[in-house]
């Protein structure tokens, strides 16, 4: 199959060796080296995240994925992990369309390459849009954390969108955690809220309503860095798609460039598999 050159090469071409050590073209070997170094970068980031989480001091708790990420675009209510599951599925499917494009390239099937690459680009764009939604929801938040004057911590039952006024009659807060059964409501509770020492709504680089500040910082950095990789991948795929349409690879006699762009795209999917596990599940 791909890479493993089955044809016999002349000994002279192999600097005196009889067998080529890797049997791989220069470009493909280099993209593999690049991917290893990029994998080391993501390993470092995820290990730093693990360190922050594992070394957390007593009395602090790390946020739970299914409680933070529970909204679905266009729907009200709680759908824990459903949207991120859809995103993950879209990225896996776009990886499949990419590998089908590579396979079509090995058969010199130009129409197949163009079709599958186009679908891969669509999948990538869908994923990027979803990530924008996730970030927007994460930054806005849903249960602003309120530090009350008496030292207790409360969470709003529903944090209104910017510009909407709060109604003291329907106001409610839960004490201790967003799912706590200890709920205070009505004008009395609204007064407590107005006299609060500090209100943390949503997330930014210095504080967030979910947990330790490092949580949001790692979320922004790691998913942001991954999103940057997806953006780069979509651009690369578009360039390769344009060249495939123009017939550049057909004239060259092989579609290896599709394979190289594909390696990068699969790597992006591979990183997401780990980000998904360590940010949303574990």
């Amino acid at each position: 199959m791909s890479g493993e050159a089955s044809k016999n090469l002349s000994g002279a071409a192999l600097w005196g060796g009889v067998r080529s050590p890797f049997s791989m073209s220069y470009g493909k070997l280099m993209i593999w080296f690049f991917l290893v170094s990029d994998a080391l970068t993501f390993t470092g980031l995820l290990c730093a995240y693990g360190f922050a989480r594992h070394s957390l001091g007593p009395g602090m708790s790390w946020p739970v994925g299914e409680e933070v990420f529970n909204s679905f675009p266009g729907l009200h209510g709680s759908y824990p992990l459903m949207y991120v599951a859809l995103m993950t599925f879209i990225l896996i499917i776009s990886s499949v369309t990419m590998v089908l494009a590579v396979e079509a390239g090995h058969r010199m099937d130009k129409k197949g390459v163009v079709k599958w690459l186009f679908l891969t680009v669509l999948g990538g764009l869908f994923f990027l849009g979803s990530q924008a939604f996730e970030w927007s929801h994460f930054i806005h938040g849903s249960h602003a954390r309120v530090s009350l004057a008496d030292g207790r911590t409360a969470y709003l039952a529903d944090n209104p969108h910017h510009g909407e006024a709060m109604d003291p009659a329907t106001f409610a807060m839960s004490i201790g955690s967003p799912r706590s059964s200890e709920v205070v409501s009505g004008p009395e509770a609204y007064k407590l809220y107005q006299n609060a020492v500090h209100v943390t709504s949503g997330a930014n680089m210095t504080e967030n309503e979910y947990g330790p500040p490092a949580y949001a910082n790692f979320f922004f950095f790691i998913t942001g860095f991954h999103g940057f990789h997806v953006t780069t991948g979509v651009i690369l795929n578009l360039v390769v798609l344009a060249q495939a349409v123009k017939g550049v690879f057909h004239r060259r006699g092989h579609y290896e460039m599709v394979e190289k762009a594909g390696l990068y795209w699969h790597f992006v999917d591979l990183v997401w598999v780990f980000v998904f596990t360590f940010f949303y599940l574990v």
Binding site: G3, E4, E259, H266, D269
Partner: peptide, 26 residues
């Protein structure tokens, strides 16, 4: 979760990235 993630990762690397079909050296 961690085991299932490793299963997914190895299938992506070995099949989608064709590393399983490359020469043992690489």
């Amino acid at each position: 979760f961690i085991m299932l993630t490793l299963v997914k990762a190895s299938y992506i690397v070995m099949t989608f990235m064709h590393l399983g079909d490359e020469r043992r050296n690489i």
